[in-house]
Write a protein that binds this DNA or RNA. Structure first.
Lengths: 295, 295
DNA sequence: CCATTGGCATACCGAAAACGTATGGGTTGG
DNA sequence: CCAACCCATACGTTTTCGGTATGCCAATGG
């Protein structure tokens, strides 16, 4: 059966007249009359009682009317919903983030997002360094807040900021008395190493920085998360070189100091699948840029 | 928008492929492809991501899919419901009845009806002699159980039985000692008169009976309902000549006796609008005939 | 009693939409 | 590099729809 027929049927039922309904539908009366009879033929029973003063629904017609009206409304709503999702007024945005950024960014990003896209269902998921790429590729998250960016041909990256590296150490460390730490003072001290996702688990994100300053730090431990790095620093297992934003999640007993003469930084990036064309991605990007710029 | 497009869309979404969907829809692939693109043009956004291994819904497509499926189901259900109503498998049957018949017929008729048409909503309404015709004409009731039948050109009547007249009197009346009362014994006694609906309120349903036996009964009171007639009989205001079935609703203190040599009876009839073609009417008629035959 | 009016149904024709066949283009896999 | 697969485009044919003209029936009014 055809939705047009149902639309015509509802119009005739409401106007209680073929002629009146035809006028409202901006069409001639005869073809409308034909369509109604075709619908009746399809049902196999009369839907109207033809009187001398118009048409009146039969019981069968009344049963059809309620459902046909609902079906029409649902179909129209479906089209509208699809448009709303395509335009970004409604839908779902699943945001992945890495824990380092959580404390610095999420508290200001989330309200900003809710204000920008009030009709959208937001959901947030923490990503680990080892699975973040897969979560973007399989669309578990629509966008990912990463540090550093994901490097993959199918994934689009937008750099929205950077965080300088800082030295993290126990409060009672002698270096903590300096307002900034010269690179040379790190030489020979044990390092708690975080791997750079692009360089394999055996490397460290700060290898280029150390090499450039000809500083050698023996690797005391390898950890996967900033959590772990700070735990080991607190246990006096070594020093960690972490992006500045990690400060906000640091426990008591750890202090951060800038590295003098080292302007190296780690990018903050928004990453998403190249073939995701949701307008929500651009909106998210705007919000994230705004929040990061105000850091 | 067209329901066919939505049907095609759902098929493609479920098959995740134009070709597969076309096969299931028993049509060629190209026209289906065209219809999908037309739907996308109507929405104004792509509904599928075209991959090399088939099609995959976009977020907008997912939003449309749920509503389109519901709309399709509702439309199909609407057609089916109309057919069910037209065939009498479902619907509503509003039964009007006159109180005289209630006690004798309804207790057996209602279960019989519920068994015959389990999907039908039944409702019952007592009719008064003065309004029963209007209730049938304005379709407040679909059928009416009447005694006697309604007489109106627009109303169809099926006689399903008859009830003999009996004499109703107080238990302590001298006539109550007879097992049947000769007509002559009524001569001169006061009558509680019920009007015959076809003969105006000033007449009585038993005028022809009395006249044929050359019996004259002064009219003590005129009442509208069998209730009232029996109340007045109980108050010793006079005698009433009532159809046999009225016995079942009679209060203590009233006895009924047959009238010797008087075979007059009042018809029990089912009445409905001539232009009501609901199959439920015929079903109702069958049930009512069966119940009345077993009286 | 006949004419007129109002409303739906039918007939026919032109226009639009959909379907099928043939074919192109891009990607995957051997 | 060729074959297979899948979707998109092009074009001719067929179906269906909408418009105009007209018929039929009942109710209304002079």
């Amino acid at each position: 059966m055809d939705l047009r027929r149902l639309r015509y049927f509802v119009a005739v039922a409401e106007a209680r007249s073929v002629g009146k309904a035809a006028e409202r539908l901006r069409m001639a009366q005869p073809p409308l009359s034909v369509q109604i009879r075709k619908l009746e033929a399809e049902v196999g029973a009369p839907l109207f009682r033809r009187g001398t003063r118009g048409m009146d629904l039969t019981e069968a017609g009344q049963a059809l009317l309620v459902r046909a009206s609902e079906a029409l409304a649902l179909a129209a709503d479906g089209i509208e919903a699809a448009r709303a999702v395509a335009s970004g007024r409604r839908g779902r945005l699943s945001v992945g983030y890495m824990f380092v950024l959580a404390n610095a960014i999420l508290p200001r990003l989330i309200p900003e997002l809710r204000r920008s896209v009030p009709g959208v269902d937001l959901d947030f998921a923490e990503l680990s360094a080892s699975t973040r790429e897969a979560r973007v590729l399989d669309r578990t998250v629509t966008v990912a807040l990463c540090m550093p960016a994901i490097n993959h041909p199918e994934i689009q990256v937008a750099r929205i900021g950077a965080q300088r590296f800082m030295l993290a150490m126990p409060t009672n460390s002698p270096l903590a008395r300096l307002s900034s730490v010269p690179m040379a003072r790190l030489h020979g001290r044990p390092l708690i190493a975080l791997p750079h996702p692009d360089h394999g688990p055996a490397s460290s994100a700060v290898v280029p920085l150390l090499r450039r300053h000809q500083v050698v730090m023996p690797i005391a431990s390898r950890v996967e998360t900033v959590h772990s790095a700070m735990s080991l620093v607190l246990a006096d297992e070594g020093l960690a070189i972490l992006p500045a934003c990690a400060q906000l999640g640091a426990p008591r007993g750890i202090v951060f100091r800038p590295l003098r003469d080292a302007t190296d930084s780690l990018d903050i990036a928004v990453c998403w699948r190249r073939d995701s064309h949701s307008p929500l991605i651009r909106t998210f990007l705007k919000c994230a840029e705004k929040v990061v710029a105000a850091l």
